[in-house]
Computed example of a mutant assay.
Amino acid sequence: MTTTSSGIQDVVRFDAVRKVYGSAARTAVTALDDVTVGLRQGSFTAVMGPSGSGKSTFLQCAAGLDTPTSGSVRLDGVELSTLRERALTRLRRERIGFIFQAFNLMPSLSVVDNIKLPLRLAGRRPDRAVVDEMIERVGLADRRRNRPGELSGGQQQRVAIARALVTRPVVLFADEPTGALDSRTAREVLTLLREAVRLQGQTIVMVTHDPVAAAHADRVLFLSDGRIAGALDRPSAERIAESFTRLDTIAAGGGVR
């Protein structure tokens, strides 16, 4: 990991990252433009910005799902550009957790088997005590034998959170994790994520368009036209919304996804 002057470690580190889609001068799209930022160990970071600001590309590059055109991305001290595809796949499987708006559960598997799945895919024998702890933590002890189709949306997202955390990932990436949930259920899911940071020292990076969701984070990064346009530490939802509105107004003429 990269260690800052204050001794705090960066789990994710971007240095002068640029991502351009397309090679022709007229059609090339710059999704990230000279982004330099560090995301600290044990922190909860929300990434926000108008449509086309580069949020999705930021997340994909940070997770090793996309490769920057130039610059450096380090995850847990590893320079991602140096890894071959097999090593990159192993890193994602062993050190990264993912949560998406679409829960991406296996419909034929029970709650407990969905949670065990990443361990089995990694060739690791699931530790029953760890799996039981995760099920208990997300409040689904009485649903462990149910299948996803028998659960509410909020319960399915709880399964997805337990599945992401059961491997003890170095960093958890969440892409609009509350986008398909009602406000009450969304608060419950965000509280679970907040507790993972507070109690386990988990590092979470969450892309969201929702100021209320972002207010659960320690820090909010704002992207605009592929650049970091600002950051807020422990802000209120009202302050986030105000900053987001200014960015949205600036980007009203268009941008990159």
Score class of each variant (00 low, 15 high):
residue 115 I to W: 00
residue 117 L to G: 02
residue 118 P to K: 02
residue 119 L to D: 01
residue 120 R to T: 15
residue 121 L to W: 10
residue 122 A to T: 11
residue 124 R to E: 15
residue 124 R to M: 09
residue 125 R to K: 11
residue 128 R to W: 00
residue 128 R to L: 05
residue 130 V to F: 00
residue 132 D to P: 02
residue 132 D to K: 07
residue 132 D to A: 12
residue 134 M to F: 07
residue 135 I to F: 06
residue 136 E to V: 01
residue 137 R to Q: 13
residue 138 V to Y: 01
residue 139 G to D: 02
residue 140 L to R: 00
residue 141 A to Y: 00
residue 142 D to M: 06
residue 142 D to K: 11
residue 143 R to F: 13
residue 143 R to P: 04
residue 144 R to S: 15
residue 147 R to F: 11
residue 147 R to S: 07
residue 147 R to I: 08
residue 149 G to V: 03
residue 149 G to D: 05
residue 150 E to A: 14
residue 152 S to D: 03
residue 153 G to D: 10
residue 153 G to H: 09
residue 154 G to M: 00
residue 154 G to P: 03
residue 155 Q to T: 08
residue 156 Q to S: 12
residue 158 R to V: 03
residue 159 V to M: 02
residue 159 V to F: 03
residue 161 I to C: 01
residue 162 A to D: 06
residue 162 A to Y: 14
residue 162 A to I: 13
residue 162 A to K: 05
residue 163 R to K: 06
residue 163 R to V: 09
residue 163 R to S: 09
residue 164 A to P: 08
residue 164 A to N: 13
residue 164 A to W: 12
residue 165 L to T: 03
residue 166 V to C: 04
residue 166 V to F: 02
residue 166 V to G: 04
residue 167 T to C: 11
residue 167 T to R: 15
residue 168 R to K: 13
residue 168 R to L: 10
residue 169 P to L: 10
residue 170 V to G: 13
residue 170 V to H: 11
residue 171 V to D: 09
residue 172 L to Q: 00
residue 174 A to S: 13
residue 174 A to P: 07
residue 175 D to C: 06
residue 176 E to Q: 05
residue 177 P to H: 01
residue 178 T to V: 05
residue 178 T to P: 01
residue 179 G to Q: 09
residue 179 G to E: 05
residue 180 A to T: 12
residue 180 A to V: 11
residue 181 L to F: 04
residue 181 L to V: 08
residue 181 L to I: 13
residue 182 D to W: 10
residue 183 S to D: 06
residue 183 S to P: 01
residue 186 A to S: 13
residue 186 A to L: 08
residue 186 A to G: 15
residue 187 R to H: 13
residue 188 E to D: 14
residue 188 E to H: 09
residue 188 E to K: 09
residue 189 V to G: 12
residue 190 L to V: 08
residue 191 T to L: 14
residue 192 L to Q: 11
residue 192 L to D: 07
residue 192 L to Y: 10
residue 193 L to F: 09
residue 195 E to A: 15
residue 195 E to Y: 09
